[in-house]
Write a protein that binds this DNA or RNA. Structure first.
Length: 506
RNA sequence: GGUGACGUGGCCGAGUGGCUAGGCAGAGGCCUGCAAAGCCUUGUACGGCGGUUCGAAUCCGCCCGUCACCUCCA
């Protein structure tokens, strides 16, 4: 079957099939964050877009080479500032109250990049083939700048090296920001390097012997401009011409526009065939900001508020990446419920598989169709809401036909898991809080703190309630249940006994 | 001022010239000692005004509203 993977291309403003330079092999670069604080859910919405693209490509049987960087150079908050001793994001993070514990910017970036990778795993994102760091590619960046200078695309001033936008006719083809005037129109109260030839020109190298991070270059001590690192690292690991480049919508301009200018000025070939950008999310209808107190990180949600990580993941992909998305706690609660259904369906399917059940052929057919529908939805510009609806349709089939399941159900759940990454796979996660406290299995849910004594107390109460129920003393049994509820413990009776879970506080 | 996106039922969110998206919440039922979970049934819709058409939520125009980028941001 011939299958196209259709994605919106920012460059052509159309949804079009990914066309690969080498058939069957996707070369893909996704812009990672600057590690000056904990990554927030908005960062992860964007990383999840890349993750889903990767999973979909792999489901098509494509080979993938996936590179996503870590920006660990503290770039200036404004490219035009001549006073380079001024604000730099990592330097200001170091001076903030959260930054006090770090010895220096290197220590700070190490801490936050470790945190990023931990959150990455928590949300079940696939590992990239390479995760390069800007600071480990300074030499290549310097070499690239030298080449840009020698081919006339860049020039030097007393404060740095700039890319000459005038020398690159296609500047603006990605963002539509072609007019130099539009950049001048914007009111700016910053100092502009008076030696710049064109206001659109951007820095490739900043000369600064006082900057917290600095390297030696042919132009003296200093540090590279923001845009050059991605051009250099993409080329180093993926070649001059790549298939797909992704990032958040804010990167369209200036970052990606500048990357195109640098790379194409150098090679004379298209830098990336396809560009995919993820829209910003809002939180409860408002722009996410520290000031409004709605600045959510994975760390807050999972480790402080006890939200199951896969519920966070599901909530973040419940809207299509290209549409405005409003992240709400109501969505998060829905997602938590759905993750439970996925888990239960997986458990039933695995049971059927383990006992080698053949199951109903009608159900096998239904699930096979559902699986195709999930994949088709993703192939259609990553239509995650439709894909999730199809996956839940299959889950419903499994839950309502639990006695007729066979290996096909297990296969369906594994396909869904591979595609969407929202299926908890630990064999039996009932009483998971207890299991975690006892160090059994890998936690999928909340992380209780120092809970072992509390957990044995819960088990005692449940046992007492079972005794009361067996004696048909329901008054006592209900009293115990109320007591547990006050401890934020919800119980469920079933044929195989009573299980419990913590009420998440969202 | 420039560029782009979006407005679907109580809520979140697909779809798209005639054919049920899905979920959450609500209502009724099955199950249960009672709950919870699960299962079954179920109502409500396409921002406004024009136009094209046999027929438009779906195409076109205008208007209203929301958001984003152009300045650090995923």
């Amino acid at each position: 079957m011939n299958r196209e993977f259709r994605l919106y291309n920012t460059l052509t403003k159309k949804v079009e099939p990914l066309s690969l330079i080498e058939p069957g092999h996707l070369r893909f670069y996704s812009c990672g964050p600057t590690v000056y604080s904990y990554a927030h859910i908005g960062n992860f919405r964007s990383f999840l877009t890349a993750d889903l693209i990767l999973r979909t490509a792999q489901a098509l049987g494509w080979k993938t080479t996936y590179v996503t960087n870590i920006t660990d150079v503290g770039h200036l908050t404004n490219d035009d500032m001549i006073d380079a001793s001024g604000e730099d994001r990592m330097a200001s993070a170091l001076q903030s109250s959260a930054g006090e514990r770090f010895a220096n910017v290197w220590d700070l970036s190490r801490h936050y990049s470790a945190a990023l990778q931990s959150d990455w795993q928590t949300l079940n994102l696939l590992e990239p083939d390479v995760r390069p760091r800007a600071t480990e590619h300074i030499r290549e960046q310097i070499q690239t700048i030298e080449r840009l200078l020698s081919c006339g695309a860049a020039y030097q001033t007393s404060s740095g090296v700039y890319f000459s936008v005038e020398s690159f006719a296609d500047y603006g083809k990605l963002s539509g920001n072609k007019a130099a005037e539009s950049l001048e129109l914007a009111v700016r109260d910053v100092v502009v390097d008076p030696e710049k030839k064109d206001p659109r020109d951007f820095a490739l190298w900043k000369k600064d012997a006082d900057h917290l991070m600095q390297w030696h270059s042919p132009w003296g001590w200093g540090f590279p401009g923001w845009h050059i690192e991605c051009s250099v690292m993409a080329q180093a690991y993926l070649g001059d011409e790549i298939d797909l480049h992704a990032g958040g919508e804010d990167l369209i301009f200036p970052h990606h526009e500048c990357e195109i200018a640098q790379s194409e000025a150098l090679t004379g070939r298209p830098f990336s065939r396809h560009w995919a950008h993820t829209r910003f999310l809002q939180v409860e209808g408002q722009k996410m900001s520290k000031r409004l107190g709605n600045f959510l990180t994975v760390k807050d949600l999972v480790h402080e508020r006890g939200v199951p990580p896969l519920a966070v993941r599901l909530a973040l992909i419940s809207g299509q990446y290209r549409k405005p998305f409003n992240f709400t706690f109501a969505t998060l609660r829905d997602s938590e419920r759905h993750v439970k259904r996925f888990r239960e369906a997986f458990r039933l399917a695995k049971e059927a598989h383990d006992r080698g059940a053949e199951g109903s052929s009608t159900i096998a057919e239904t699930l096979k169709n559902r699986h195709q529908a999930v994949l088709n939805a993703l192939l259609d510009d990553l239509n995650t809401p439709a894909a999730i609806a199809q996956a839940l349709g299959g889950v419903r089939t499994i839950l309502q036909s639990r006695n007729q399941l066979g290996v096909h159900a297990y296969s369906f759940m594994n396909h869904v898991s591979d595609l969407l990454g929202v299926v908890p796979q630990t064999a039996d996660l009932r009483n998971q809080s207890l299991r975690m406290a006892l160090g059994v299995g890998k936690p999928e849910g909340s992380i209780p703190k120092n809970d072992v004594p509390q957990n044995s107390r819960i088990e005692e109460l449940i046992q007492a309630r079972t005794v009361a129920r067996n004696a048909r003393d329901f008054a006592t049994a209900d009293k115990i249940r109320d007591e547990l509820l006050k401890m934020n413990i919800v119980i469920e009776d079933s044929a195989s006994g009573t299980s419990w879970h913590k009420k998440s506080n969202i």
